[in-house]
């Protein structure tokens, strides 16, 4: 069997990639259109719809909320996820296997069920403020990514180095920060980025945890699409895509993108 796939297969793959790329190109085109309705190819180039994003206060507010939640949620997930990932690798023998599975649960159960459960028990049941409930929800949905990505980089870390440092008199906590953490830096950065993007784009959990005055950008986009069909949504989408590209460029610079495919 020759190494080159059959021409029909190559043609199918090319069509699949076309199918993946064309809709995104169309969104960008529609965002740049000068018309008051959504159209493609754009008729007259303009950035007015990008200005319109910031003219609508709901978009301004939700962009800020989304960034706050994504940043805080990711930081908390790292804060509790890094020690957990470390423990899972360092004490692999001592800790039961199901503990690793436990941290994957948030992506195993349907997100929309999780969002509803949080609404029922936290906001309605315990009177937790919406922002706090939103933060808790986002922290949990990104936790699996944090634990898994950092575990993967810890798996290739030789713990003998840590033991050497400790037996030479370095305090365990100091050893962690000066020896272990710098060695898994790439994993921490990747985990941060994956978690941040996941949180920023989340719909299913946020859907239930929004209320008067508090909403996230994707939920606001959904609400806007159902009322107005103008290019503003296309330009917000482009804004989100640019954010993703920027973040991916950082990953590419630091780790190489194939890292994300693992």
């Amino acid at each position: 069997m020759s190494d080159r796939p059959h021409p029909i297969l190559i043609a199918v793959a090319a069509l699949v990639y076309l199918f993946l790329m064309v809709p995104l190109v169309i969104v960008v085109g529609a965002a740049l259109s000068d018309t008051t309705y959504l159209t493609f190819p754009p008729q007259g180039l303009s950035l007015r719809w990008f200005e319109n994003i910031f003219a609508i206060s709901a978009f301004r507010r939700t962009i800020v909320t989304s960034l706050q939640i994504a940043f805080l949620g990711t930081m908390i997930a790292l804060l509790i996820g890094i020690p957990a990932a470390y423990a899972l690798n360092r004490f692999r023998v001592e800790l039961p296997k199901w503990l690793g599975t436990l941290f994957v649960l948030p992506i195993l159960v349907p997100e929309i069920v999780f969002g509803f459960a949080l609404l029922k028990s936290l906001t309605v049941g315990a009177g937790v403020p919406i922002f706090a409930a939103l933060l808790i929800g986002h922290t949990l949905i990104v936790l699996p990514y944090v634990v898994r990505v950092i575990s993967a980089s810890l798996a290739s870390f030789d713990f003998a180095i840590e033991e050497a440092a400790i037996s030479l008199g370095s305090a365990p906590v100091k050893t962690f920060f000066t020896i272990v953490l710098p060695n898994v830096r790439a994993g921490v950065i990747a985990a941060f980025i994956l978690a941040f993007i996941t949180s920023l784009n989340d719909v299913s959990v946020s859907l239930f945890l929004t209320g008067p005055g508090i909403s996230t950008l994707p939920i606001q986009i959904l609400a806007h699409v159902e009322q107005f069909f103008d290019p503003t949504v296309a330009s917000v989408s482009v804004l989100l895509m640019f954010l993703t590209v920027a973040v991916m460029a950082i990953v590419e610079r630091t780790l190489g993108l194939t890292f994300l495919a693992k």
Partner: peptide, 20 residues
């Protein structure tokens, strides 16, 4: 990379594209 990119683009954006 071309396969990862749409995956990192939000579901709302990707559904919206098909609306257009």
């Amino acid at each position: 990379v071309a396969a990862v990119f749409p995956l990192l683009t939000g579901v709302v954006v990707r559904a919206f594209a098909w609306l257009i």
